[in-house]
Design a protein around this nucleic acid. Sequence first.
DNA 1: ACGAATTGCGCC
DNA 2: AGGGCGCAATTCGT
Length: 571
Amino acid sequence: MHILLERPDRGVVRATWLDPSRFAEADAEPPAERSADIDLDDLPAFVEAQEAGDERPRWVWDDTSAWYPAFLAAGVRVERCVDLRLCHVILRNSTLTARTRLATAEPGPWDVALQPELEQSPTAHTALFDLEQPADALAAGRPSARTELLAQEEAIAASADPGRLRLLLAAESAGALIAAELQHAGLPYRADRHDELLTELLGPRPAYGRPAVLEALTRELREHLDAPDLNPDSPPEVLKALQRAGVMAVSTRSWELRKLEHPVIEPLLRYKKLSRLLTANGWAWLDAWIRDGRFRPDYIPGGVVTGRWATRGGGALQLPKQVRSAVVADPGWKLVVADAAQLEPRILTALSGDEAMAAAGRGKDLYEGIVASGAVDERAHAKVAMLGAMYGATTGESGRLMPRLTRAFPAAIRLVEDAARAGERGEKVTSRLGRSSPLPGPAWDAAQAAASGPDSTEADERRARSQARDWGRFTRNFVVQASAAEWALCWMAELRNRLTALVPGAVLTDAPHLVYFLHDEVIVHTPEQYAEEVVAAVHAAAGKAGRLLFGGFPVEFPVTAAVVDSYADAK
DNA sequence: ACGAATTGCGCC
DNA sequence: AGGGCGCAATTCGT
């Protein structure tokens, strides 16, 4: 049974029971079995009661991030949902639903991006269902959620592959639940350890100005370059000073500087590294983002066109390896750090059904398997060649290795090449489960039109060709990255279910629960006695994800799962 | 003066 | 001539 939640009026929530098996009967509206108006204050108890039944409902709402945090705050979890906003975006863009009513309709309220100021800032409100919450604002501007749900059902039923789309939408919606739970639980984070680390590398926290170590390095750089007022944080100043000192730098990028020979290079690189640590993850970051021993970033499911998540604030997806020793399990608890080994090349293998590459990845490191196949000489070459194939590298070592890779794994390479050609023609490409790439914008179209016009110049053609190649590299990568994101969502959703089952009825943070997600990596915080069961669940979930996406095709998706006290100990 | 764009670097 | 991001400091543009 679906239970749809809407807010027709302030202070009231309307719950409507809908039987999905009867959706096809209705023309305009799915038949409601019954409905009830619920006082906001009673809502968590209502939800909890429904979740306790024999058959758990699928909650349907406009926006998980607007509803679910308040339930979690009240100690209530839900098993599954439909996030209409996220699902709408997928169905609107997918090539699988291209000719459905939902996709061909004029843009409506569900196509408008959320206003950032409407987005919930979970730390900012305390009262349950504060009247200013976005659910209110959204409900005002949108047609009924019931109408939208029916439109989505109709689009799925009429699509080229309802099964895949249903899986994708379920996974996307599960991701939205998980994102809210991740933020609710938070990543266990030891501010004291982070501070020790900063003090060790930078010197004690200064009241103002640069920490001692950076100050000393600044003096050293100024002397080396004979530039007493040099601001080492200003790339143009540094570049000019280097050139005045006879260093033939073309930019101040670290990887460019590393190629140069000069006594100033080493301290300059050291300065840049430490300065980066200070500005990105220094004391200010600690003050802003670590509360009560937890790091709670905003996760944004579907925040990236490929279906990857984004985050807002705290740079959660860029947590540098340098500081991961501050991620520490609570006493009596462990972290299970799990990641999928060489996920994207394995996804490409499965997408293309490349038997040779599947064999190379069977039961071992995929890159070693490629070496063993004789295609390349060493693991590093296999890695750079595969990444190049998926990113569209044309030059350098990666470009040189491509012909050998193409000969050894023709199906896999053909798949990414086809995706690149489609992008160059301005077409969409589509992931395994049905997420499609956007079309290039008006500027791209204009550039292509200019190049094929009667009075086009050579510059027009060059620009058009270059932009076409750029878009081709995007679509080439899209099919792999988007499908990998789908695998990761299925993995995580399955893992969540298995974790929930380990300790039935437990409050989220009293039992094993997810605390971090990073594209192809998850961290579970678990009481020590469940650690081995969590490890087993991580592996089982990975197997399930592979079967869900690719059925019988024999590609393995091995995951590593380390039971550790600190994130830094996982690799 | 202030917002937008650029530079550079962290993660996958 | 390498895909996707977020963030901070500096510089650019008006």
